[in-house]
């Protein structure tokens, strides 16, 4: 097989060498272009079929009412969009979404950076700690959340531990504020390992001469961090911020397993609300409308971050 291919290549090459009047149609350039399209075809088809077409369909669904039991659909125009304005639950849902995503991003980036900076001091045991901090990343989300659910019960392990040092812990999952705190912490502890590793490798990429030079100029460690380290790892910071926030906006399993969106609506984030409307209340039209709103948030945030990146990030190739 490969022999015949080679022969063909050789014969074609020799045809070129002979320099006949008409140049062959399949020049290297043309072949390259075709290969390029062929190479990206599966990925492009996947995105078209499983992302863009569904988004188009979602727009259509948002203009219709469906009865899932009978499959009947009626065109209702912009009704679901006006319903957004009068949905009494939506403001709480948006607030919960903002607190959750904001909380996760801030805590995740800060904690990830803190651990990375500490581990970057290269001491004995650093690898062990890196393994420990990373380990929740490979633990199944549902299993991880289930276990935290046990530990966060009023008579569960966390309050038991707190009791041994004389603190009476709150009833974590039963009050809005502590429930939100619980889902944020559960999510951050599970996933911060990824950002930690990315930050670590970014920190190790900072040339040590820069530090030495700064120290010679008499800069303190805080100045070095804010004037040298932070600017140099800012591309990593921004990229991880985007990935973390898009991930936070999509956190479904954590909420579904830990709080079911409660108490009241305190942890009902938009993603969970979409699921409830579409698959529990069977209101596919309204569910699609909410989903499109979620999509516009993600798009807006990304655009915003891209603009920031232009202004703020120092070295961009």
């Amino acid at each position: 097989m490969s022999a015949t291919t080679k022969n063909r290549v050789v014969s074609r090459a020799s045809a070129n060498v002979r320099g006949t009047a008409r140049p062959p149609f399949w020049t290297t350039r043309r072949r390259d272009v075709l290969t390029g399209y062929l190479f990206i075809a599966p990925q492009l088809a996947g995105v078209l079929l499983f992302v863009l077409v569904p988004v188009g369909l979602a727009i259509w669904y948002s203009l219709n009412d469906w009865n899932v039991f009978t499959g009947k659909q009626t065109f209702v125009g912009a009704e679901h969009y006006t319903a957004l304005a009068s949905d009494p639950q939506l403001p709480s849902v948006l607030l919960a979404t903002a607190i959750f995503s904001g909380g996760v991003v801030i805590l995740n980036i800060t904690l990830g950076l803190l651990i990375a900076v500490l581990l970057n001091r290269r001491f004995r045991g650093a690898t062990l700690f890196r393994t420990l901090f990373f380990s929740p990343v490979v633990v199944s989300v549902v299993a991880w959340t289930l276990v935290w659910g046990f530990l966060l019960q009023d008579n569960g392990g966390i309050n038991g531990m707190l009791a041994t040092i004389g603190i009476e812990g709150p009833n974590w999952l039963q009050h809005g504020d502590t429930a939100m705190l619980s889902v944020i912490i559960t999510q951050v502890v599970r996933s911060v390992g990824v950002n930690m590793v990315l930050f670590l490798s970014a920190l190790q990429g900072v040339p040590s001469q820069l530090y030495e030079a700064a120290r010679m100029d008499g800069a303190g460690s805080r100045t070095i961090f804010t004037r040298i380290t932070l600017p140099l790892i800012s591309p990593t910071l921004l990229l991880t911020a985007i990935i973390t926030i898009v991930g936070a906006l999509q956190s479904f399993a954590q909420i579904a397993v830990l709080t079911g969106g409660g108490p009241e609506l305190s942890t009902t984030v938009l993603v969970y609300y979409v699921f409830q409307q579409a698959f529990e209340f069977n209101d596919i039209g309204y569910g699609s409308t909410l989903a499109l709103m979620l999509l516009s948030f993600v798009m807006l945030l990304t655009l915003l971050q891209w603009q920031l990146r232009r202004k703020w990030v120092f070295h961009e190739q």
Partner: peptide
């Protein structure tokens, strides 16, 4: 609409 009543009722009753 049992699921919707259950959820809305629960949210209020919390």
């Amino acid at each position: 609409s049992p699921a919707e009543i259950a959820q809305k009722g629960k949210t209020a009753l919390d």
